[in-house]
């Protein structure tokens, strides 16, 4: 939509880019979508907290005893039990957990005794930068490949892209990581095989340490997204308005840009959101392979140490992030689609 000058004095239906978001927030329908989205997210979020809490009930036996192993004093045992609230009846525990969770208190780690929230937030930047970089690499692959494949439907290029993307979807990401390390670190020695350099310490080192894990994650994410981009573009290509656009004698590039890609953006944003959420919680094994100090590795260590509060915290955080990303996608939908925006 253009930033055109007003034609008439009536500005009721006029839309321009700059004022759009603020006007949207005031628009009754968008507000309705927003409020409904937030309500839905809250309901599911409560469910997520309940499930997370329920995890510890599934532990066969006494979680504190299992966590402490064989050598512990009764004092340590009682202290840990009391600190994690496990000495209280279950319904009360749930209420406490719910209340604390919504204030950001996820209990203390069995292992280190530090607050779970602190531990998680320490590791979040590493994972977030990996997930973001992965989605970026993925998009760099998926957008051109998916669009090209759709435009060449049924031809050789399409077949090659489709089979290649199938291979990409089927590759175990940790195996890909091992192969990349073998090639680029052990053999060629171009890039570090593992570890993480914080951006604040050494931007170049940060980038170097990020390349291999990001490519590993991005190749798989890119393959998945290629398939979605392809089908989204194909669907729009088959629509009546694309035929109309062609019947106007518009150049293929204009048709593609204005009538195909623009309309395919909405479904593509969804899959990017889902990929982002998936990567945030799904790069566990890649983090282990690259010794990446993110949430995934933290969770892995927590599992090994039977640090149940930490496991719960990680699961909860990822579930909540997924829901927030989804909510953001829903709001983007409302911004992008006039059928939702103005009724």
């Amino acid at each position: 939509m253009s930033t055109h000058e007003p034609l008439t004095s009536s500005t009721a239906t006029k839309v321009d880019e700059r004022g759009r978001l603020s006007r949207l927030a005031r628009h009754p329908v968008t507000r309705f979508v927003l409020v409904r989205g937030i309500l839905h997210t809250l309901v599911v979020l409560v469910g997520v907290v309940v499930v997370t809490f329920g995890l510890i009930l599934l532990v066969p036996g006494d979680p504190v005893r299992i966590a402490l192993g064989t050598r512990y004093s009764p004092e340590t045992y009682d202290a840990l039990r009391a600190a994690s609230g496990l000495d209280q009846p279950v319904p009360l525990q749930l209420l406490h957990y719910l209340g604390h969770a919504f204030t950001g208190d996820l209990g203390v780690s069995f292992r280190s005794g530090e607050p779970v929230t602190t531990l998680l937030l320490e590791r979040l930047p590493a994972t977030a930068s990996l997930a973001l970089a992965g989605v970026l690499v993925g998009l760099l692959i998926a957008l051109p490949a998916g669009i090209w494949s759709a435009l060449r439907e049924g031809r050789l290029a399409d077949a090659i892209i489709r089979v290649t993307s199938q291979v990409g979807v089927s590759v175990p990401d940790f195996w890909m990581g091992i192969l990349l390390i073998t090639l680029f670190s052990s053999t060629l020695g171009w890039l570090p095989s593992s570890g993480y350099t914080p951006f604040s310490e050494d931007p170049a080192g940060w980038f170097k340490s990020l390349v291999l894990p990001a490519v590993t994650v991005g190749l798989v994410a890119g393959s998945i997204m290629t398939r979605y981009v392809r089908s989204a573009v194909l669907e729009v290509l088959a629509s009546g308005w694309v035929r109309t656009a062609r019947s106007k004698g518009l150049g293929e590039r204009v048709v593609l840009r204005r009538h195909v890609l623009r309309n395919a953006v909405v479904p593509v944003v969804t899959i990017v959101g889902i990929q982002m959420a998936t990567l945030l919680g799904g790069v566990i094994v890649v983090e282990v392979v690259f010794a990446w100090p993110g949430l995934g590795r933290l969770t892995y260590e927590a599992v090994a140490a039977r640090d149940y509060p930490l496991i719960q915290g990680a699961v909860l955080l990822m579930g909540a992030l997924f829901l927030l990303i989804n909510l953001a996608v829903d709001v983007l939908y409302a911004v992008a689609d006039p059928r939702i925006r103005q009724r």
Binding site: V43, L58, G281, I284, R306, M318
Partner: peptide, 24 residues
């Protein structure tokens, strides 16, 4: 569907990891 949404909200591998961690 809300129940399904709840389970769907967890990243696949993370949830599987947590379940295995709990069950042994």
């Amino acid at each position: 569907m809300r129940v399904v949404d709840v389970v769907f909200a967890f990243p696949v591998l993370l949830l599987a990891l947590a379940i295995v961690a709990v069950l042994g």
